[in-house]
Amino acid sequence: MTHTHLPVLFKLSRRTPSLLPNYVILTLLALFVAGPLIVLLFNSLKTTSEIGVNPLGPPIYIQFQNFPDAWNKGNYAVTIRNSVIVVAGTVTGVCLIAGLAAYALARLNAPGFGLFSLYLLVGTTLPITLFLVPLFFLWTRLGLTDNLFGLMVIYWATFSPFATFLLRSYMVAIPADFEDAARVDGANDWQVIRHVIIPIVWPGFLTVALVAGLGAWNEYILAYTFIQNDELKTVVTSFSAFTGRFTRDWGLTSAGAIIMTLPVIAFFLLLQRRFIEGLTQGGLKG
């Protein structure tokens, strides 16, 4: 910049507003978010009798007995196993179904694909209210209620469209030359996918896996509707019943809440960038 601009720049920097109000308001918003979580943590460390006199403050005597108690009374060994099965099955299924479809939509332009994409886009906006009731009675007739596989299949269908769009956007970005070069070298389809496509789009698969996995772990409405048997409940629906059984034992239910939330928070903090990317792209669509 020339000398004539200097006075203006100087004035600008002097006029730059203070950031103190920013930090004050941002901190208040942070307290609004963190406060209830801190209360949850506090309560998980108190005895029931202490909660009676001190329901919201920090614990006076810290004790961890609520965690093993909640684990046993909440049947966590069984429900976490169920949730892990559902999450693993959902993630595997969604990655396969969406991976195949995304490859076709990105690479092979067959007649009817435009219409199919449109259908998929409309399909993701259909509200659960529209299909829940007939789906439930269809699933009852097929023996897929009270069945972890039956729940998984619903998650495949509801999570796959978003995953397909996300993976497609990754695959479109791969130069066609990469694939052609591999084919000239005699690679078959499987080898192309294994050695060319997957190494490039695996971050997309990771994002899809995180979003679908989180969705399956946290999902309530479908799990609540389709699984009634206590031995097959996921951690979410079982916890919901657990809080109903022990309404007065805040220590117990708070510890239970932390047990099922800790893995999610750990994953989230570890991979927050990918989580946020996936959820802000996918969450808006479904």
């Binding site: 969406a98 332009n109 009731v133 269809l138 269908a157």
Partner: peptide
């Protein structure tokens, strides 16, 4: 050009129709 691409879409289409489209039409 046609069969192979649609075969790749088939799983997605199948589960979408069974779980979402058909019950929605049912509603």
């Amino acid at each position: 050009r046609v069969i192979k691409p649609w075969l790749l879409l088939l799983p997605l289409l199948f589960f979408n129709v069974v779980v979402i489209l058909a019950p929605s039409l049912g509603t």
